[in-house]
Amino acid sequence: MSSFINNIIYNFFISFGVILGASLMAGLGAIINGHPPLKTMFTIAGSIKIWAIAVALGGTFSSFEIIEKGIFKGEIKSIIRQAVHVVIAVVGANVGYGFIRLIQKCGESIFG
């Protein structure tokens, strides 16, 4: 596989994993603190989506540098590649959010 495809796969799973991991750990913290874990997990998942995207992209500055290079040096291919990376990271974060939302809905139907 090409490195571009490999990086896209990494971006998806990194942003997905950030949402999933942070939400699950927040749920554990909520249990310890005596708060509702499902509500806490859902709240955290929604509030950290942008951070999951930034983590998947390896920080925001490199993305802006690539976009700047594409705009000012006419490297359209690099802009398209970076846009694909951003879109895949957003998709990964949203799939993670949807997964946490599914857990919440299943928990509500079982417990509530």
Rank of each mutant, 00 (worst) to 15 (best):
V86Q: 08
I80P: 01
Q82G: 04
I67L: 11
A54D: 03
Q82C: 01
A22H: 01
G92C: 07
G58P: 03
Q82R: 09
G96P: 12
V90H: 14
E75C: 05
V84L: 13
I32M: 09
V86M: 10
S63K: 05
V84C: 12
V55T: 13
P37N: 04
G92P: 11
A30E: 00
E68N: 08
I44G: 05
L102E: 07
F72I: 01
S47M: 07
Q104Y: 15
G58F: 02
A54F: 11
E65Y: 05
G74I: 01
I103R: 08
S47V: 09
G17I: 00
I50F: 14
V18Y: 00
A56C: 05
I76S: 04
F42E: 12
Q82L: 02
A22I: 00
V87T: 15
H35V: 10
L57K: 07
R81P: 07
K77I: 05
V55K: 07
S78G: 04
F99T: 14
F72T: 06
L102N: 10
I66G: 00
I79T: 04
K69G: 05
F42L: 14
V87D: 03
M25K: 07
H85I: 02
M25S: 09
I66T: 09
E75P: 01
I88P: 05
I19W: 06
R101Q: 15
E65G: 08
I100Y: 13
T43N: 14
L102R: 12
G17A: 02
I53S: 02
V55F: 02
I76H: 01
S78F: 00
R101F: 15
E68L: 07
L28A: 12
F64K: 01
T43H: 04
P37S: 06
G17D: 03
A30S: 09
I50S: 14
V90K: 13
F42I: 12
T43Y: 07
G34W: 10
M41P: 09
F42Q: 06
A30L: 04
G92A: 13
I100N: 13
T60Y: 02
G59L: 01
F99G: 09
S47G: 14
I44P: 12
T60L: 06
A22Q: 08
E68F: 07
V55C: 03
I80F: 07
A56Q: 03
K77P: 02
S63G: 08
R81A: 10
H35C: 09
R81Q: 13
G58D: 10
T60I: 14
V18Q: 06
A89Y: 11
G27P: 07
A93C: 10
